[in-house]
Design a protein around this nucleic acid. Sequence first.
DNA 1: TAACCGTGGCT
DNA 2: TAGCCAAGGTT
Length: 291
Amino acid sequence: MLEPKLLHLPILEWYENNARELPWRTDDSTPWGVLVSEIMLQQTPVARVLPVWLEWMARWPAPKALAAEPPGEAVRHWGRLGYPRRALRLHACAKAIVAEHDGHVPSDHATLLALPGIGEYTAAAVASFAYGGRHAVLDTNVRRVFARAVRAEEYPPTATSAAERRLAEALLPELGAARWGVAVMELGALVCTARSPRCADCPIAGACAWRLAGKPPHAGPARKGQSYAGTDRQCRGRLLAVLRSAHGPVPKAALDAVWDEPIQRERALDGLITDGLAEHLDDGTYRLPHT
DNA sequence: TAACCGTGGCT
DNA sequence: TAGCCAAGGTT
């Protein structure tokens, strides 16, 4: 195994000099701000999250403020971040924090994990970044950095393995684990990127097993691409965009107008209602959820 | 476990 | 240009 200190110092020093200034990382950011940023950043780039996060923090500076709103307002102000079920879960999360934790974001990993929309990664991230807890933060960036630096592979496996978790925990420093986690993430986001890694700028290039092996390309089968055009997801997105931009119930015809294929359209609309992203009123109109 | 869940920028 | 990809979670 690679000696952890060969990685720690160079990466931490690199982070000192190259970290982006992000508002959820400042000294006055709150655990709630960190939590909201983590949910928004799930599968969504920083540049798109930034303006929405700022608006959310101004509008809902604490869980209690969001919990007082109907869930549809969370969905509306989610805008076009994508995966709007995250907005719904974040709203449910705020309500649970108010109901079960007196409005305070928990600091304990297991307690965080029990909240809606918070999985293994996000629980570790909040416990670590907001409270300084010592947890292995295994996101796609960290997994890629470790896959390359330690395992000499271009990409990590599809699903997080026990071996990856063991490695991440073995590399966790006794002190300063939170800073270490964010530093490795940042390295993956800015230098050790998925497609065109900037190895010339990498602080651990000299120790990177993948680079030393000649950067062998990913061996296994190509990862499944996510098709989008013509899918239910695209249809749901179109329908929900109509509900978001309207400031009241909309007639069925307004929804019919944005998607031609009727079978798929009805299926997608049913799905939105089942998921709690839309409501069907008695008069036949539709709107964002009020309850 | 693998499919499903949005959106848009980049190469 | 058309994939590829982005601080995942849920079922």
